[in-house]
Write a protein that binds this DNA or RNA. Structure first.
Length: 391
DNA sequence: TCTGGGGTCCTAGGACCC
DNA sequence: TCTGGGGTCCTAGGACCC
């Protein structure tokens, strides 16, 4: 059994923002959209007022009227994230990146060089703090899910080590909602049946749990509840954060500042979103076969529709026309639209596509037009070239 | 000014095929 | 002609994670 570290930045987006604004350090700060947005991260003073991430910003402001709201600087966040991942890889090459601010480190090999896991954990924390000026917390355990729980218990700015023999004692009193994969809905379902703690789940017969949440989820929960999930890392992982397999879908969605009642307004946004998605696809030489749209109405009801094409594509025009057809097939909108989204699924490398038929004149023309736009965008920026209807 | 935006995975039914 | 049984693809929705 090799020790695994789970490293998790403390209030990452907020910490990055506060690095630029040290004058706000002791004030309640939230990063997120000021309008119709949610809290992406809350500083610890803000948390003291009950502000949490994923909370609507309007609610956060009610809880804490003096809350300082900052817009996220995604470029800065991305560069700090890459730098932090680099710190990890200097300590061990065995890094599985989970997201911008989280990773697992297998320090079995580094142990010989650097010492026992708790010493390596402190080394990681000191390095990140010295180089990036932000704090993180580290959990140490033999499996990934226990390490992840341990880092949570270590927050903020600490280390928690869980020895294998301590796993049940440490896990079983915890709320089931802390298990990876148990969100609000599953937690409520389990609670209705009297399963409140991890220990309650651990002691439930497999067959009974199968009935409750399905076979797959049941096996998953039992493994987590006993701390017997995987102990090997998938090095790389998380596309965009450090390699790994390409995405299997790419999409974009937008919540309107004010709900939109007219078709043209929705289609304009669909075109903007499609342009962004297919541009990203071409940038990574990916094509996809299934086009999906999401439409959320004023009353928050959300529908999705998808259509699989005969051939994979990265052509803006094709994806857009499919998206419009899917939208129109919904019929006249009875309620104003709050959000629309476009997603292309079933992605694969462009080179691997064998065309069943010779590309028609029309398709080839649009494909070349897209590439010309991409070149111009690279040279002159995104504002330089855009569809006429977006001007 | 209740409820963002980027994803992944699972389920379940129907079509279709052998 | 009392009706199997997989496997795969497609679609819609839902839950979850960061």
């Amino acid at each position: 059994m090799t020790p695994i570290l789970h490293v998790d930045m403390d209030a990452f987006y907020a910490s990055v923002a506060l690095r630029e604004r040290p004058d706000l350090r002791d004030l309640p700060v939230a990063v997120g959209g000021a309008h119709r947005g949610v809290v992406l991260a809350a500083s610890y003073p803000a948390r003291a007022h009950g502000v949490r991430s994923a909370m609507p910003m309007s609610r956060a402001r009610r809880l804490c009227p003096q809350l300082v709201v900052l817009a996220p600087d995604f470029e800065l966040i991305g560069s700090v994230s890459r730098a932090v991942h680099e710190c990890f890889r200097r300590i061990t090459p065995l890094v599985e990146v989970l997201s911008a601010d989280e990773a697992f480190l297998d320090v079995g090999g580094a142990g010989r060089r650097l010492g026992p896991p708790e010493v390596v954990a402190e080394l990681v924390r000191a390095t990140v703090h010295d180089e990036q000026g932000i704090t993180c917390s580290v959990g140490v355990a033999a499996t990934v899910s226990v390490a992840k729980l341990a880092s949570r218990l270590a927050k903020p700015d600490g280390v928690v080590v869980v020895a294998p023999e301590d796993v049940p004692r440490m896990l079983h009193p915890l709320d089931v909602g802390l298990l990876y994969g148990v969100g609000d809905k599953t937690r409520a379902r389990l609670q209705r049946l009297g399963l409140r703690t991890v220990g309650d789940v651990a002691r439930t017969p497999r067959a009974a749990l199968h009935e409750l949440v399905g076979a797959r989820q049941a096996d998953h929960l039992l493994a987590l509840a006993w701390g017997t999930d995987r102990g090997e890392l998938v090095v790389g992982r998380a596309p965009g954060f450090g390699g790994g397999e390409p995405d299997s879908s790419m999409g974009a969605q937008h919540t309107f500042g004010r709900d939109v009642a007219d078709r043209d307004g929705v289609l304009r946004e669909l075109l903007r979103l499609t342009t962004s998605v297919t541009g990203r696809m071409r940038g990574r030489d990916l094509v996809g076969r299934t086009v999906a749209i999401t439409v959320r109405s004023t009353d928050f009801t959300t529908v999705s529709r998808s259509r699989t094409l005969a051939e994979p594509t990265d052509v803006t025009r094709e994806v857009y026309e499919t998206a419009v057809a899917l939208f129109d097939a919904l019929g006249p909108q009875r309620r104003a639209v709050r959000l629309v989204g476009v997603r292309v699924e079933g992605l694969g490398p462009r080179g691997a596509v064998h065309h069943q038929h010779v590309l028609g004149e029309r398709e080839r023309g649009w494909s070349e037009a897209d590439r010309a736009v991409d070149r111009a965008t690279r040279r002159f920026g995104g504002a330089a070239v855009r569809p006429a209807s977006l001007l």
